[in-house]
């Protein structure tokens, strides 16, 4: 149904569909009941109204049942979120720099690119930093987003199991060309990634390593 391409996508969609499904049932329930009452108890059909002040049992029921349902939604949302925070220790660490109105990516060995190239099925951690105003790093197909600040080291991680090219958008309003601040994640087969990485590293005159290099 939706384009999904990361380890989080299916869970986010599932929680969303769970809440949306329950909501739809209740919404239809409310609307149908309301329309039914409006027709059944119209002035024509029911000229004499009956006063009903309230009903404690009903009040307790329609407080308690939504409460339980809401708690389940809260729980599933929290569980999914916790996965997003559990960054694997072996994740490839890539620094993302945002400025008005572009993204740039820096690999551990110092290689810089304007598209985010990552190998398929590997955990990737991105460290976010802004050079000016606030931005937000958003990959809709991965269901991930994080604000990017100049004074704060936000990060997030993902693992994509599908080779392909996915949009990166800026989701925090940042001025004139906010809507043009797109880049992309290119998810590649491991061997393609290795070849690409060796080539760009060679061009930059550095070792093609994804382990953080100490600055000389």
């Amino acid at each position: 149904m939706f384009r999904s391409a990361s380890n989080f996508s299916d869970n986010v969609d599932a929680v969303f569909l769970y809440i949306a499904g329950l909501s739809l049932i209740v919404l239809i329930g409310i609307t149908v009941t309301m329309v039914y009452f409006v027709i059944r108890y119209s002035r024509k059909r029911n000229p004499v109204p009956k006063n009903i002040e309230g009903n404690l049992t009903l009040e307790i029921l329609w407080t308690a049942i939504p409460f339980l349902l809401f708690m389940s939604m809260f729980y599933f949302g929290w569980v999914g979120y916790k996965d997003m925070r559990a960054i694997p220790a072996d994740a490839i660490d890539i620094r993302v720099t945002a400025r008005m109105w572009q993204w740039s990516f820096e690999y551990p060995n110092g290689v810089k690119t304007d598209t985010l190239y990552v190998p398929v099925s590997k955990a990737v951690k991105v460290d976010l930093k802004s050079m000016d105003v606030s931005h937000a790093f958003y990959v809709p197909a991965f269901r991930i987003k994080k604000d990017v600040y100049a004074n704060k080291n936000n990060n997030l991680w993902f693992r994509s199991d599908k080779v392909g090219r996915y949009d990166i958008a800026c989701a925090e309003y940042c001025g004139l060309n906010h809507s043009k601040m797109y880049s992309a994640v290119q998810v590649m087969e491991q061997k393609d990634f290795d070849a690409w990485f060796a080539e760009v590293s060679k061009k930059a005159g550095v070792q093609p390593t994804l382990v953080l290099q100490l600055k000389k």
């Binding site: 999914g80 996965d83 997003m84 987003k145």
Partner: peptide, 19 residues
């Protein structure tokens, strides 16, 4: 209100925030 419930779930909110 119902869409507010969707936005209240943390993992879903991360995707939907600022859209």
């Amino acid at each position: 209100g119902f869409t507010g419930l969707m936005l209240g779930a943390l993992s879903v909110n991360i995707h939907l925030q600022d859209t």
